[in-house]
Write a protein that binds this DNA or RNA. Structure first.
Lengths: 204, 204
DNA sequence: GAAAACATGTAACCGGTTACATGATTCT
DNA sequence: AGAATCATGTAACCGGTTACATGTTTTC
C-alpha cells in the first residue's frame, strides 16, 4: 500500500497526469518503488474517490484532453501521517539468494552464470544510482529542483540531503551485491578447479 | 513462483509433513524465502497434483494421521531445471527507502525513529544470520547435516560452502543497512541541531 | 507522412496476506 | 489436567503482473 504514498509525494510537488507519474515511476521514485502504468491509472481514480486527489480535465491539443491530478489537503495529511508512522518491513523473498543457498543443485556453468547475472543486474542499478547522485549534486534533476523551489527555504537543505542519503544507501547496496557475487565467482574457481571460468573451450 | 522450488529443495533432503516444512520456513529457508502456513498446505496439494510430490498418509499416535510428502523424479528434475535457469529479479519496492527519500515530510522525531527502527530490524536479522553461520561452521544444524549425509561425498564440501556463502551475503547486507541507518542518525544530528537526539527532555 | 511521445485505460490471473477454524498428541 | 506442540486446513481480499487495446499530438 505504499504506491499511493509515492504518488502523494510526487503530487505534493506539482499536479501531474497519469502519464507524467508513470515516467517518474520509470526513473526517480521507481528506484525505490516500482509501479507499472496498469496500476497507476486505477490507483489515481481510487485516490480521487478517497478524497486524496482532485482530477482536473484539461484540454490537450485541439481535440485531446488529459486529466491533471492535484493533491488535496486530505492528501497532504495522509502523506504526513504515513511519513510519521514506522515503515513496514516486507518478509524476505529473494530468488537470487534462494538459488545461491542451493547452488550445488546447479551445474558449475549455471552457478557461474548466476553470479555474473547478479553482477550485471546490480551494475545496471548502480549506474542508474550514480547518475541520480550526479543529478542531485549538480542540481540538474528537474523534479528535485521543483521540490526545492516549492519547499520552505529553511528546508531546502534537508530535501536535498535526504534524497542524496537515500541514493547513497542504494549505491552502497548495489556495490555490496557486486562485491558478494564477485567473491562467489572466486569461490566457484576453488570449488570447481577443472571448470573453464571464461566458458571458452579449453584448447592445448 | 519460487515457493515450490524452496519446497522442493527441502524435500530433496528428506520427506516431510506440511508442518515440518512450515518450521523450516520459519527459520532456515525462511531467511531467504518467507512463506506462511496458509500458503504451504495448498501449495503442497498443487505440487502433488502436478506430479512433483507424492503424499503418503502415515499414522500419528493412535487416532491421528499426517501426510508425509516425498519428492518425485519429476520434482527433482523441476528443481534442477529451475536451478539452471537465471534468477528473476523482482522490481524494487522498498518502503523504508521510499520514506528515507522523502524524510523532510516527517517530523525530526519520526525521522529518528525511522532510522532506529531500521537498525533494530536489521540487527534482529543479523543475529539470526550469525546464529546460522555458527551452526553451519559447527555442523550443528540438523537440516544441513541431513543434506550433507544424503549428498555425494565429493559434493559435501560444496553443499556447505554454498550455504555458508549465502549467509555471508545476508550478514553483509544486514551490516550494511545498520551502518547506513547509523549514518542517517548522524545526518539528522546535523540537520536538526536543536532537536534532542535521545528523546529526553532538555534540562538546564 | 511516419515515428515517437503523449494519453488512458481494461481484464484475467496469481501469489501472498489476514483472519478464521479445528482437532490430536505429547510433555510436564 | 493443562500447556505446548503437532497437524491441517478454508475463505475473503488485495496488490501486483501480464497482456490486451486504442486514440491523439507533436516532432522530424
Amino acid at each position: 500500500m505504499s504506491l499511493r504514498y509515492a504518488v502523494l509525494a510526487l503530487l505534493a510537488v506539482e499536479p501531474m497526469t497519469g502519464y507524467d507519474l508513470q515516467k517518474q515511476f520509470g526513473t526517480s521514485v521507481g528506484n525505490v518503488w516500482h509501479a507499472p502504468d496498469s496500476q497507476i491509472y486505477p490507483e489515481l481514480r481510487k485516490m480521487e474517490r478517497d478524497g486524496l486527489l482532485e482530477g482536473e480535465e484539461v484540454p490537450w491539443g485541439s481535440r485531446g484532453k488529459k486529466r491533471l491530478y492535484h493533491i488535496t489537503d486530505d492528501g497532504r495529511s495522509a502523506l504526513e501521517q504515513w511519513m510519521n508512522e514506522p515503515a513496514e518491513y516486507a518478509r524476505v523473498r529473494d530468488p537470487a539468494y534462494l538459488k545461491a543457498a542451493y547452488l550445488e543443485y546447479a551445474t558449475p556453468e549455471a552457478a557461474r552464470r548466476h553470479f555474473t547475472a547478479h553482477i550485471e543486474h546490480h551494475s545496471r542499478l548502480l549506474s542508474q544510482f550514480e547518475q541520480q547522485l550526479h543529478e542531485i549534486d549538480e542540481r540538474s534533476s528537474i523534479m528535485l529542483n521543483k521540490r526545492l523551489a516549492g519547499a520552505d527555504p529553511d528546508k531546502r537543505h534537508q530535501v536535498q540531503a535526504f534524497k542524496r542519503f537515500a541514493y547513497e544507501g542504494l549505491t552502497l547496496r548495489a556495490q555490496q551485491e557486486i562485491s558478494w557475487a564477485s567473491r562467489g565467482l572466486r569461490l566457484l574457481d576453488r570449488l570447481y578447479p577443472g571448470a573453464d571460468p571464461a566458458g571458452e573451450t579449453t584448447s592445448a
